[in-house]
Design a protein around this nucleic acid. Structure first.
Length: 500
DNA sequence: ATGTGC
């Protein structure tokens, strides 16, 4: 797609307080819901808007929401929610299937990590067990935790099942603190997922190597971060924090990672397969965009996509669970007696079957986080039925990150909020505009240690939007409220590593 | 995001 095509598309804006709507002209459809003020809306470039309009007008789509952090993505913008009762779309899930956040609350008080030597020892112990970087997999992990091809297949098919958790030394009760502990594919059966995997295996590139990536972060914006929890002083924050297991003034660990090489392989395999079908059958693409291929529910193509998405999602889930188990072990090695509890695990790149407007639909969240408030029917029987589930919103190490909880107003955004601060500088622009020495000095001044000799400059806090502004737009749109702020004490990133 | 080039 070209920018010329993008600017040719006409649309009108319907303003409605903090939330606005974009109506593609000539259509009778429900407009695109935009969360964010006019100032936020003005940050969307033409291609991002064109992707939103293409997605809105694509077959079977009934709702499209753009979040304040929206920017160009693969077919659909990153920072959008796309709802369809009849079709599945791989683009609006993305290449990193089930990229997610997780938060582990430890029993340690904040002053346990004051000493720089202790923090350096923790960084080493954590990096020994949970490496960063593309292509990097397990190292220094005991044989009992090594994921070979056979265990990898179970992980892909079962997700964080009781059996898989036992094999890997993951506390089984953590599965109750997952958005979805296991994904079952197109017909709700692990049997059909196993069959799909057997069909795929002969053409899988380095399958065993990909399985051995379980328990690793990867690169880019993925990270692990040691935090001090600051619970809000209001009654609702205190009550929610208690249900979530958050300890005010305690040490916690926040992780951001996804399905690594296997998720990428499954996603790109699906794009290629569907693009070939569209070409072969000469079907028009939404907005002539090859990245917006889709499959109608009930077809062999949709079944294959839903199965592959489930396989990738299961890997991502167990990846996060294992990282949390290994990080807890690292804490125990450095500070004996430390205990830990998973607060929550929640994705921002996944399609889920939910009830929208009283009928089942696939809700594709692409760089968007599910936000069910207390009393939502889908939370019945979970620990979060009354409060709403925890929303983990990464900001940046210096401004902090947030734990939020949804409000009734989240219905406006198909029960979703943004998935982070969003970039304000592209990677190239950040490298041009920011000074490495100054970025490193800012970490020294705020007493935040890292595993890198120099912090990756395109990931510097200044490359991201002002986090308080972002939180303000979520709160003022009535989507969610802040429960706690997380303040970083050290960061694990893929970069110029001090231990290599 | 990624077997960081199929």
């Amino acid at each position: 797609m070209t920018m010329t095509q993008a600017t040719e598309q006409k649309h009108e804006i319907i303003a409605n307080g903090e939330a606005t709507a974009i109506m593609p002209t000539g259509g009778k459809q429900k407009p695109i819901t935009v969360i964010g003020t006019e100032a936020i809306r003005n940050t969307f470039d033409d291609l991002c808007l064109q992707q939103a309009i293409n997605s809105r007008q694509a077959p079977g789509v009934t709702d499209l929401v753009l979040n304040p952090d929206a920017h160009c993505g693969y077919g659909a913008p990153v920072g959008c929610v796309m709802v369809s009762p009849s079709h599945v779309y791989p683009g609006p899930v993305g290449v990193d299937i089930k990229c997610s956040m997780s938060l582990l609350q430890t029993s340690l008080p904040a002053d346990a990590v004051d000493d720089k030597k202790v923090r350096r020892a923790l960084i080493k112990a954590i990096c020994d067990r949970t490496p960063t970087g593309a292509g990097r997999g397990q190292r220094n992990v005991p044989k009992s935790r090594h994921v070979d091809e056979a265990l990898g297949k179970r992980v892909l098919v079962e997700g964080a099942s009781r059996g898989v958790c036992e094999e890997l030394g993951i506390p089984a009760e953590w599965a109750n603190h997952c958005e979805d502990a296991s994904h079952v594919g197109h017909n709700d059966s692990t049997g059909s997922l196993a069959l799909r995997l057997e069909k795929l295996l002969p053409n899988m590139y380095k399958f065993a190597d990909k399985m051995s990536q379980l328990g690793s972060y990867g690169g880019g914006n993925h990270f692990g971060e040691c935090e001090v929890v600051q619970v809000g002083e209001d009654k609702r924050s205190r009550e929610a924090a208690e249900v979530f297991g958050l300890v005010d003034g305690g040490v916690a660990f926040l992780s951001h990672c996804g399905s690594r090489g296997i998720g990428h392989q499954l996603a790109t395999g699906q794009f290629k397969a569907l693009q070939n079908k569209f070409e072969q059958w000469d079907i028009p693409l939404p907005g002539q965009d090859k990245q917006l291929v889709y499959a109608p529910l009930g077809t062999a193509e949709a079944n294959a996509y839903l199965d592959d998405m489930a396989l990738g999602a299961n890997f991502a889930t167990v990846n996060h669970m294992l990282i949390n188990a290994l990080v807890l072990e690292a804490f125990q090695e450095v500070i004996p007696g430390t205990t830990g509890q998973l607060v929550y695990f929640i994705s921002h790149n996944i399609a889920r079957k939910e009830i929208v407007d009283n009928r089942p639909a696939w809700v594709h969240r692409k760089g968007a986080t599910r936000a069910f408030p207390g009393g939502h029917h889908a939370l019945k029987g979970t620990p979060f039925a009354k409060t709403g589930h925890p929303i983990l919103l990464p900001g940046n190490p210096q401004a902090g990150s947030a734990v939020m909880v949804a409000d009734e107003g989240a219905a406006l955004s198909c029960y979703s909020v943004n998935h982070g601060a969003g970039r304000q500088l592209g990677r190239k622009a950040a490298k041009r505009a920011l000074d490495q020495a100054e970025v490193d000095r800012s970490f020294d001044e705020t007493d935040i240690l890292t595993n890198c000799r120099s912090y990756p400059i395109d990931e510097a806090p200044a490359a991201y939007k002002d986090f308080d502004e972002v939180l303000h737009s979520v709160k003022s749109a009535g989507l969610a409220s802040e429960v706690a702020r997380l303040k970083a004490r050290f960061v694990i990133k893929d970069g110029d590593k001090a231990d290599d």
